[in-house]
């Protein structure tokens, strides 16, 4: 992906831009901290099987004798209703949330990018049609469409990802279409058209590679929202299935033990909060850094 980005003829100024971006990032403390947290979360997700003290508790192992124990040196975050270590499960949940969110976003990119590129490049009736369809999808209040689709597909983490992708792609279609329209007027596209390159080739060789970077930025900003949506679906019983240590599912289950075991709901909640917050702060910061309108300030 990255090599593609830099292989274009616009490499020179891009490199300069990138350096400037790094400088801006360094100056914005909140963004820098959030970037560090995000990187840490990714690290935790990768090495979770090795750092979780009770890796078996994240899968099918149960230990009901030790149920609902408060936090202690043996179980840092206490145990759940089947005696499983909540710390291990929260750690492992990082992997699940990041993974699902990533897949959901990639799925929506796969739908959204080509549609947007086609709409923007070809224009006319096809553009009109695609944009009306995105309008329709965007007129569902947030979450509602995902709820309905998850209900149809049946509750599972996989189906939750599909449901989110189906309700999320129109945002990328809109973004890419805008990019495509402006790219269409650029010299190198005009040149390609002039030598008779087919429209397909223009879309996939010239348009899509050149609008990918703002899309990636947008997608990374969306990660927080997607993670929150997944946990909401799981909370409603439309996402992850037991015994998967998904945060939203853990909170949903913990409701029943709310008065006896405060630790059960509080830690997964904090995990969601920190993760979503870090991604949102990073996204906000990135947008400012990369947005030509605000960057000169």
């Amino acid at each position: 992906m990255l090599t593609k980005l830099f292989s274009s003829k616009l490499m020179e100024p891009k490199l300069k831009e990138a350096k400037f971006s790094l400088f801006l990032l360094n100056r914005n403390k909140l963004t820098k901290i959030s970037l560090i947290i995000v990187l840490l979360l990714i690290l935790i997700a990768v090495i979770s099987p090795w750092i979780a003290p009770y890796p078996g508790h994240t899968d099918l192992e149960v230990n009901p004798q030790d149920k609902l124990l408060p936090p202690s040196s043996q179980y840092f975050f206490g145990t759940d209703e089947l005696g499983r270590d909540i710390f291990s499960r929260v750690i492992f949940g990082t992997r699940i949330s990041l993974n699902t969110a990533l897949v959901a976003v990639i799925l929506s990119l796969i739908i959204g990018i080509p549609l947007g590129a086609v709409a923007g490049t070809i224009g006319g009736k096809i553009d009109e049609l695609i944009m009306r369809i995105t309008d329709i999808f965007l007129s569902f209040p947030p979450l509602l469409l995902a709820i309905a689709i998850a209900a149809v597909l049946g509750p599972s983490l996989q189906n939750a990802m599909i449901a989110i992708a189906i309700s999320w792609w129109p945002w990328y279609t809109r973004l890419v279409r805008g990019q495509a329209i402006s790219l269409k007027e650029r010299q190198f596209v005009k040149a390609a058209e002039a030598i008779g390159t087919s429209q397909n080739k223009i879309i996939f060789k010239h348009i899509i590679p050149n609008c990918i970077s703002p899309v990636i930025v947008q997608a990374s900003m969306d990660m927080g929202g997607v993670i929150l949506t997944i946990s909401s679906l799981s909370f409603l019983g439309l996402g992850a299935q037991a015994p998967t240590p998904e945060w939203g599912l853990m909170i949903s289950t913990s409701r029943n033990f709310f008065l006896n075991a405060w630790w059960y709901s509080i830690f997964p909640g904090i995990a969601i909060f920190i993760t979503v917050l870090a991604f949102n702060l990073l996204g906000d910061g990135l947008r400012e850094i990369l947005d030509p309108k605000t960057r000169k300030n």
């Binding site: 909140l30 927080g224 929150l228 946990s231 909401s232 909370f235 939203g248 909170i251 949903s252 409701r255 709310f258 008065l259 405060w262 709901s265 509080i266 909640g269 969601i272 909060f273 979503v276 917050l277 949102n280 702060l281 906000d284």
Partner: peptide, 21 residues
């Protein structure tokens, strides 16, 4: 910013439970 970004990062269902508690 911390407040406004924090507000959109909180799982609402979790906030509800804790306000009740």
């Amino acid at each position: 910013r911390l407040f406004s970004v924090g507000a959109v990062s909180l799982p609402t269902f979790w906030v509800a439970l804790f306000l009740q508690l």
